[in-house]
Nucleic acid binder design. Structure first.
Length: 489
RNA sequence: GUCCCCAUCGUCUAGUCCGGUCUAGGACACCUCCCUUUCACGGAGGUGACCCGGGUUCAAAUCCCGGUGGGGACGCCA
């Protein structure tokens, strides 16, 4: 790869919606690329669509990017030498380049109405031709223009395409791409109110901001020839392009709202860890060339090269993301997981304020092996919270099935607990030995299961070896009483 | 419809550039077994793919052509 120029990449979201999983992945690739080559990662807000741009979306995008750990070096909040980083604040610049285009005679005013344009489009479609602007206003005389203006018709500015030779460019991921300019049609670069449109603003900014590599979604391949034409006409130095394949839903269609969570925020509230999502996203369309899958950010940065990007689109598989998230929940620092779990615990109605931090840590430590996502933390840990203690129907049935034995076990256990005073890991072993010698029940399974059912109210859960010490003697005894009374034993 | 892009297990992918070592490797999911008082974790196995048709070649997942399929674009959105 040509790395003679300083590496500068950018992510250019438009604040017209929340950050999409695909956008996050594109941002991530840009970020990894910039870090790998020790370059600069720029965040540019493309807010030229005044009607749809909302501050709320911009805030969310910034927040989500930060949550993912994709930090930018230049952009909003972090001003740099190539600012401003909002297109709405760069209008003078576009005006300057527009003037240049006018002087070169490469643009013209178009007075066609949206209805006329749509009719033209439909007509071309019907005749099996490429729908494009045919150039009706290309050669308007001054008088014609005046007449149109007198009618009160607003006008847009179109870029005049005179090229006949194929527009070719080398895509760093896809290789050589060639497009016949005749399919393009003169495209609009400025709206009636003078605001620039995407293809114009983006290429001006990419060049002005000295972007070395434009890494963006595949949907932009068709914009590239237009941008190249504009840049060449303006004498601007072009960046290199790399078009990343898009992410598809399981039904092979474009990922959208009807497929459930699509914005990054959705994944966060569903209990996915930023590191896990980052890891998963990095592996969607890229791989390190060996069989590693769980990779730290450091490793991702070290190994990230465009040469290893996959060209075909990838289907987003939430099952694999869940698996990876589980891996991160199990293997991250316990304190981190405890901290991340707090909001989910609260959301499940489990109050942790009056609980000892050490106790909570123990709880999370014992149940984290069961978790795929953090929003399951409540349902797996509530058995440790006395205020949530209830006997599940199936637990009741099981206990009732062996009424006599259960009563014997519980009474013996209660006595033993009262005598023990406290209980820890070793104490549990001793307790079980004593229990075994005190009761007539010899079935190991029945012995353990009765205790589990009576103390947790559930059929399943972590080993009793850890459950009992975490509950403590008081809680255990309290639960024995409740269970007994509920079963009228 | 037109143009552009893509095509290996259900899914993510290695292998394709430089054809033989690929009876196609790994991971998720699924199934079986082991561990285990239960769940989960963990461990060991298993099912499962080169889109189709031609061509080049001693030899094709790999190169070429055609077809088919999928996706993207065709905005006074980005």
């Amino acid at each position: 790869m040509n790395t003679s120029k300083p590496i500068r990449v950018r992510m250019a979201p438009s604040p017209t919606g929340y950050l999409h999983i695909g956008g996050a992945r594109t941002a991530l690739f840009n970020y990894l690329f910039s870090r790998h080559y020790k370059g600069t990662f720029i965040l540019r807000i493309e807010d030229t669509d005044q009607e749809r741009s909302k501050e709320e979306f911009e805030d969310a995008i910034l927040q989500d990017l930060r949550w993912l750990g994709v930090e930018w070096d230049e952009g909003p909040i972090k001003e740099g030498a190539y600012g401003p980083y909002y297109q709405s604040e760069r209008l003078d610049l576009y005006r300057k380049y527009l003037k240049k285009l006018q002087e070169l005679g490469k643009v013209y005013a178009c007075y066609c109405t949206p209805e006329e344009l749509e009719a033209e489009r439909q007509d071309l479609l019907k005749r099996h031709k490429t729908p494009k602007y045919l150039g009706k206003c290309r050669n308007l005389t001054e008088q014609e223009k005046k007449a149109l203006e007198a009618q009160g018709r607003p006008s847009v500015i179109r870029f005049r395409i005179d090229e006949k030779d194929p527009i070719q460019f080398h895509d760093l991921i896809r290789g050589d791409i060639s497009v016949d300019p005749s399919i393009l049609g003169d495209f609009v670069i400025c709206k009636p109110d003078g605001w620039p449109l995407y293809n114009f603003a983006a290429v001006v900014d990419d060049c002005e901001m000295k972007i070395s590599h434009v890494i963006r979604g595949e949907e932009h391949i068709s914009n590239t020839p237009r941008q190249i034409l504009l840049a060449k006409t303006l004498g601007l130095e072009l960046p290199q392009y790399a078009h990343v394949s898009i992410i598809l839903a399981p039904d092979r269609s474009k990922l959208s709202k009807r497929h459930g969570a699509t914005s990054l925020g959705d994944y966060r509230t569903q209990g996915f860890l930023a590191d896990a999502l980052k890891n998963y996203l990095a592996l969607l369309g890229w791989n390190p060339g060996d069989e590693r899958e769980i990779m730290s950010e450091k490793e991702l940065i070290q190994d990230f090269v465009l040469e290893r990007m996959v060209k075909s689109p990838a289907i987003f598989d939430v099952e694999k993301l869940k698996w990876m998230n589980g891996m991160y929940i199990r293997n991250s620092a316990l304190d981190t997981i405890v901290h991340e779990s707090l909001p989910f615990l609260e959301a499940s109605g489990l109050s942790v304020k009056d609980k000892h931090p050490h106790w909570l840590k123990k709880v999370i430590e014992t149940i984290r092996g069961n978790l795929e996502t953090l929003n399951q933390v409540g349902s797996f840990s509530e058995l440790f919270f006395d205020e949530k203690f209830t006997l599940a129907e199936e637990a009741k049935t099981q206990l009732l099935k062996n009424k006599k034995e259960v009563l014997e076990v519980l009474n013996a256990l209660d006595t033993l607990l009262a005598k023990a005073g406290t209980i820890d890991l070793e104490g549990f072993q001793k307790l079980q030995e004593d229990l075994k010698s005190k009761v007539t029940v010899s079935d190991k399974k029945l012995l353990f299961q009765s205790q589990r059912l009576a103390l947790t109210g559930r059929l399943k859960g972590p080993e009793m070896t850890v459950v009992m010490p975490i509950l403590g003697v008081d809680s255990c005894r309290k639960r024995i009483q409740i269970t007994k009374s509920k079963l009228s034993l």
